[in-house]
Design a protein around this nucleic acid. Structure first.
Lengths: 361, 361
DNA sequence: TTTTAGCACTTTCGGTGTCCGAGTGCTAAT
DNA sequence: ATTAGCACTCGGACACCGAAAGTGCTAAAA
């Protein structure tokens, strides 16, 4: 089942052309446009072979060929050439990473936007990976009926909730609660909060039992939830300009995926740190598969642990080389900026000298 | 230009029918179904009058009539009958308001979801109205490279940002910054931060000038932004099941509105506290107008000030009576739960005794 | 053995014509 | 003021047709 060099070249040409125009590509168009000094008949027979091997398919008898998921797979894995970002594109990306952005969530959000601007597909930014351990808790007294509960995780991410109460509290009580939290609950994940721990916490809270219960409920919710509010999706509109999504039913299935934001967390299971992954709709065995849709994403790591991702959603017929190049460039810069890492991955032709900061601990 | 009773009845019947089926309604269908002991010819001439007055229109010569925006307007203002929520519907709504939900943002979010579930339209929940004055600032030291900046507003809302720094800080420095912020910047809105204030703040920060600048930038950003992350939209998918949105172009215009979330803040200008508003697409003079689209929303107030809203987006041909009833019921309950108000508005046949809490200050 | 030219076959796509039904406006009778 | 009757209009569904694109196959050429 090996592909000859010629077959590879033809497959690549077909996919390149299809990505560009969206039309099924016939044998004739290949002979005309390119470096093949072969007749259409020869190409035709080669394409026939490729179809038999599962790389191409025909929408109907007398149309050109279209890549299958398998076709795209070998394309992104080994066929496609490297894309070099242009000046304007680098400017857009560098602008976001220029260090002006001080708030992490916003940075991710803007990052996704920029990628969307360059590639013209929908993008998503996701923060808050699998429940990492809690480093410590902080509280802020707001007024006698409410307070802010802050969870600082070991991986540097932060979650907080504004909690409203029926009863009233004092700063002192809040301080007690904070101490108790840090003594009993730090370093625990959601499923490690068992009866023993709960009792210990309630004991420390003395007579303020109902307050303790509320606090525990909030903590539990914060630990468990994948913090769905931290999934940002942008540029969904753009998808409507691609013919494959004009179909209402198909677009509906995409949209409903977007509304179940927690499903983006599942993506993380497929994440390989420091590497851009491509998930193809159809036939690839995974729950994220949507017909005619492609996902490309790059995990963001902090201290070797995956804490989020930034990615692109578009038609399966996507300009993968451009998307992958953008994500690679960006993810490297983002990871660096968020984590202030020891190692700096050099990315193709760094258009601007990036600031390198050493973590000083 | 007064409408006779008979014209009103006919207009109401037309709209009711159109809302139910989505088909243009002809004279014949009215004579068949209902209480009119009139021939189709008579109805026809009445409808002709209504069309001349601008309440109805015909998609084309030989179709039935369809309501205009003006038609809907009089319908929602004076024609439609009151809708009484059914048991199951009340259960869905009460479930959310049952007091289990302690976090405000989440509460709003769930509220919108519940309304969507009942009405089958898209919903939105919006928090953080026009930039209200800041009561005080709080800070939390996270690590030597980052901290949390918290802004507690007079209206009880809270905004916070996790700020990453290039330089390093100490808890002491942070404490200084917090004091300086509260002394110079409390009670100011974004446009009141002028050079005088800035200089004063920087002076208080002594030699840590660059840190001061960063802090000011974040504060400015927090004050200015309408906190777009607090706009939750849910159930967009549902819109795709209505024929008026099957058209790609139309759906696209809706979607792109959704992506400019800050525009929901503009809605607040039209908000009348304690009252459900209906904004009709087309022809009504306001920037929110989208063809064939209707907005219904109810502001949420805290201490008499509008801090957010919860609402429904659907086809102009919406079941207004049901939507308005749901929103009225919900908004009353929500406002109560968020603000613990002195006055409790009694809503139609409260299916479950609502807890009434008196603000104890 | 591989490649090519030629040709018959298949299928989609856009345009056209026809028919049917629904609903109207008008007019004359009640 | 209301109604019955009727001619008219328009959109939607359907079938039909020819053009265009692309194929697979076969027989000849390299």
């Amino acid at each position: 089942m090996e592909l000859s060099e010629r077959k590879k070249a033809i497959l690549k040409s077909v996919i390149d052309s299809y990505i560009r125009t969206g039309d099924p590509v016939g044998s004739k168009s290949l002979t005309e446009s390119k470096q093949f000094s072969l007749s259409s008949a020869t190409i035709r027979s080669e394409m026939n072979d490729l179809e038999a091997m599962g790389y191409l398919e025909q929408p109907h008898t007398s149309a050109g060929r279209v890549p299958t998921a398998q076709g795209y797979r070998t394309y992104v894995d080994s066929l496609m050439e490297k894309y070099f970002l242009g000046m304007e594109e680098l400017e857009v990306l560098d602008e976001v990473m220029s260090g002006k952005m001080v708030e992490v969530g916003k940075l991710m959000d803007e990052a996704a936007k920029a990628i969307g601007q360059i590639t013209n597909y929908a993008t998503f930014a996701f923060m808050g990976g699998s429940g990492s351990a809690v480093d410590r808790y902080e509280t802020v007294f707001v007024d006698e009926n409410s307070f802010l509960l802050i969870m600082i995780c070991k991986d540097g991410t932060i979650r907080n909730r504004h909690v409203k109460l029926m009863e009233s509290i004092t700063p002192d009580l809040l301080e007690t609660a904070k101490k108790a939290l840090n003594e009993t609950l730090a370093n625990l994940s959601a499923d490690q909060i068992n009866l023993t721990v709960i009792l210990e916490f309630e004991e420390k809270m003395g007579e303020h039992r109902s307050f303790a219960t509320t606090v525990l409920r909030v903590v539990h919710e914060m630990l468990g939830s994948y913090d769905r509010e931290k999934v940002h999706i942008d540029g969904v509109t753009k998808l409507l300009s691609y013919p494959e999504f004009m179909n209402v039913a198909k677009f509906q299935s995409i949209l409903s995926l977007f509304e179940q934001r927690q499903r983006f967390a599942e993506l993380m299971q497929h994440a390989v740190p420091g590497q851009t992954s491509v998930i193809l709709g159809d036939s690839e065995q995974n729950e994220f598969a949507l017909p005619d849709t492609g996902f490309v994403f790059h995990p963001i790591t902090v201290g070797g642990k995956v804490v989020g991702a930034i990615g692109v959603i578009g038609p399966q017929r996507m300009d993968y080389k451009k998307v992958v190049a953008s994500l690679d460039y960006f993810a490297a810069g983002l990871t660096e900026q968020i984590s202030l890492p020891e190692v700096t991955t050099e990315v193709q032709g760094t258009h601007e000298e990036r600031k390198i900061t050493h973590g000083g601990e």
